[in-house]
Amino acid sequence: MIIYGTALLAVCHLLGIFIGDLLGQALGVKTNVGGVGIAMLLLIFARLYMQKKDMLPKLTELGVEYWGAMYIPVVVAMAAQQDMVSALRGGPVALLSAIAAVGTCAVAIAVINRMERPADDEPVSTPMLHDNPLLADAE
């Protein structure tokens, strides 16, 4: 059953690479744009969908969780292979996209924080010993 988790990862990876290539072509770049990230999102959505529909056995879920955890080092290794100096020399697109990404994350975090319900600020009242009629005689 663990092999099914690996198969799900492989399908998500192939779809992510394909969509990343299509996105690169649409942007006029001759490279994959975000394929690994798209694959990770597909894996997360597939796992959540399968859990909701009760189609994910425990062993398969363990395989998906393992590969989901392994994806982070893979993404870091792939990002380390990119040549940032040539990207910055190529134009301001890299700098503008970095600023846009940081700004988008800041706005998303602010929106999520504002959507959170405030906790009740009322203190919980605890009865005092002298309010208890059974303990009033003990004083």
Score class of each variant (00 low, 15 high):
Met1Cys: 08
Ile2Met: 10
Ile2Leu: 15
Ile3Pro: 06
Ile3Glu: 01
Ile3His: 11
Gly5Arg: 03
Gly5Trp: 02
Gly5Asn: 02
Thr6His: 14
Thr6Val: 13
Leu8Cys: 01
Leu8Thr: 11
Leu8Pro: 09
Val11Cys: 04
Val11Ser: 04
Leu15Pro: 09
Gly16Met: 04
Ile17Gln: 12
Ile19Val: 15
Gly24Ala: 08
Gly24Lys: 03
Gln25Tyr: 10
Leu27Asn: 12
Gly28Ile: 03
Val29Pro: 10
Asn32Ala: 04
Gly34Trp: 01
Ile38Trp: 04
Ile38Pro: 12
Ala39Met: 01
Met40Glu: 09
Leu41Gly: 14
Leu41Ala: 15
Leu42Thr: 03
Ile44Trp: 05
Ala46Thr: 14
Ala46His: 01
Arg47Gln: 09
Leu48Glu: 13
Met50Arg: 05
Gln51Phe: 01
Asp54Arg: 14
Asp54Pro: 08
Asp54Cys: 14
Leu56Asn: 04
Pro57Glu: 06
Pro57Phe: 02
Pro57Arg: 02
Lys58Ile: 07
Leu59Pro: 08
Thr60Met: 00
Glu61Lys: 05
Leu62His: 09
Leu62Arg: 11
Val64Tyr: 01
Gly68Asn: 05
Gly68Gln: 07
Ala69Ile: 11
Ala69Arg: 15
Met70Trp: 12
Tyr71Gln: 13
Tyr71Glu: 10
Tyr71Leu: 12
Ile72Asp: 12
Ile72Ala: 15
Ile72Pro: 02
Pro73Met: 07
Val74Asn: 03
Val76Thr: 00
Ala79Gln: 09
Gln81Lys: 15
Asp83Asn: 04
Val85Lys: 11
Ala87Phe: 11
Arg89Ser: 13
